[in-house]
Design a binder for these strands. Sequence first.
DNA 1: CGACGACCGGAGAGCGCTTCCACTAGGCTC
DNA 2: GAGCCTAGTGGAAGCGCTCTCCGGTCGTCG
Lengths: 350, 350
Amino acid sequence: MTPTHGVARPTLDDVAVHAGVSRATVSRVVNSQSSVAPELRERVQEAIDELGYVPNQAARSLMTRRSDTIALVASEPATRVFGDPFFSGIVRGVSMEANRANLQFMLLMAQDFEDLERVKRSLRVWPVGGVLLISGHAGDGLPEELQELGLPYIIGGRPTRADLVAPYVDSANVIGAQLAAEHLLSVGRRRIGTITGPLDMGAGVDRLAGFRDSLGTSFRADCAENGDFTQRGGEDATQRLLERCPDLDGLFVASDLMALGALAALRRAGLQVPRDVAIVGFDDNEFALTSDPPLTTVRQAPIVQGRAMVRLYLELNRPDIEVADEPGIPDLSGRDHLVLPVKLVVRDSA
Amino acid sequence: MTPTHGVARPTLDDVAVHAGVSRATVSRVVNSQSSVAPELRERVQEAIDELGYVPNQAARSLMTRRSDTIALVASEPATRVFGDPFFSGIVRGVSMEANRANLQFMLLMAQDFEDLERVKRSLRVWPVGGVLLISGHAGDGLPEELQELGLPYIIGGRPTRADLVAPYVDSANVIGAQLAAEHLLSVGRRRIGTITGPLDMGAGVDRLAGFRDSLGTSFRADCAENGDFTQRGGEDATQRLLERCPDLDGLFVASDLMALGALAALRRAGLQVPRDVAIVGFDDNEFALTSDPPLTTVRQAPIVQGRAMVRLYLELNRPDIEVADEPGIPDLSGRDHLVLPVKLVVRDSA
DNA sequence: CGACGACCGGAGAGCGCTTCCACTAGGCTC
DNA sequence: GAGCCTAGTGGAAGCGCTCTCCGGTCGTCG
């Protein structure tokens, strides 16, 4: 048996004795709820500092029946979660905001069906107060599971099932894709194809929809190829696309990582970007800047998205934690969802 | 206040009543320690299944004064943790093995000094039973802090301070670098430079040491340039190196990600790989395979390393959890450290 | 000046679990 | 067959905390 801490940690009682008050008073000071006389509060605070008192989370959550832990669940294999800067942004945002709210967050990844079961089991066993769902694929069953467990959750992206009402934080994917398509049209491209994201994900569907919408009658279904948001997938998809639509002069790729693959495929096919084919990506991550040529792309803000997800969770489920307004993060009081703006960033690829 | 679970969860008592035994007996069955009559044990198990009983972790760890949670702490910014497949491998390995042992793991990243303080605070507040430290930089103070907190920890890599005795799991970095250098020599290269890792990290120091060792008197200090294990860092370092040592015909780069950058820098300088400069990397991750040309590199096994770290932790600190032998993971009974073998993988770059 | 209310602090009951201890059987040894 | 184990079970005491009650102390108004 391993004690959690080598040195015996001071308890509430210790502090109470030290400060000459009752446990209840100390508790009230610690949780800064209800009224404690200023003088007493100060004395208690001093005792806390002096003893280096830190509340025992286990005891606390045993009593309150809630836990100050949120889980970030990605229905993706670890390689993808770790390979795409988009996820790193989300994680950073979540980590940032969770920290500010004194929540602990844990990261769960589900590579496959088996893992999905494991994750569900984890959520059952571990005292988690809420779940942030990212990269949801239709049919992973996670929202339903959480519903059943009575665990509040926030979706990053949008619900994939229309009958499922759930709070979410999404990027303006449709608009972003429209901007991309319009830009390609505005630089004179007329035979425009697209590499989509997975069509069981909101982002995949929406970016295709926006693209199709802006192209109108010039949209050619045979010049849309499915990718999987990985570089390799983008490369393969582009190669297939080139075989079917060799006369392409413009390409909207639904993520920068896939666009990187597309660049490689085009180069191998002897095509120059943007001279022969103009490319617009989606994300605006570090790859977009360092690629050759630098990508024209649609900027979204994964860090903000991650932060907003935590804040939305707090807003809806933790009235005891106050969420201070923050510049750069849209106000979300009273809302149950948020769609973050995107912006076209023009560089050399289109 | 949010209840952790919408539906009232059955407690030990519920199970006890249902099975017609005492709480103590149910607890014994759940923890499968000490002896319970087979017949009773079965009856209890049935009751557990029937009610869908899941132990309350908070109550449990309140009693046992330990927590079934381990933290994986990376002294790196999130962008690096998420950008390098090495980390993704570690995380996957840890996640895998933690899961098997029914431990929860949480990921903490320290971008800078401020974060480091935050992480330390987290470790104090949250009931963590042990810590896995990766990517330790000399002077981050983490080991000392953990020592003081009385938290057991395992180092991924090796202790950066000689006076610090701590269990660790490392790769055979010195040997790996020797293999790389010897390979470059064996293909006839004589003017060999190196891009090192950060020299405040064990991996950085050891790979340089192995390289220098194999080169002997042909080692040229001015043809060693420091990198930071990022692609960009590798690119910049290579560029600097080329200015100082334009006659280079071989290059050992201490990580594949940096090697990718090196390839870019060489290409920009109009040099061909391997004709003009032969390159050997370190890692053997997916980039090594897809780069142009595919990298000759030293293979290490981050997933195994992650798994071994958890197993070593269990071995040393949790006698109550048994660690079954696993093919592919070196036996670690009785050991307090492990050095994983590496292997040269020859492809086209050298 | 007495009574009422507002407010503040303390006592104490548990949250769900583990584990020490006491106790009962049954199987030994001599 | 009496003593003595050993194995198996239940009772009960808390782990450290929160929060409901309740009693006490003021300020204030009639």
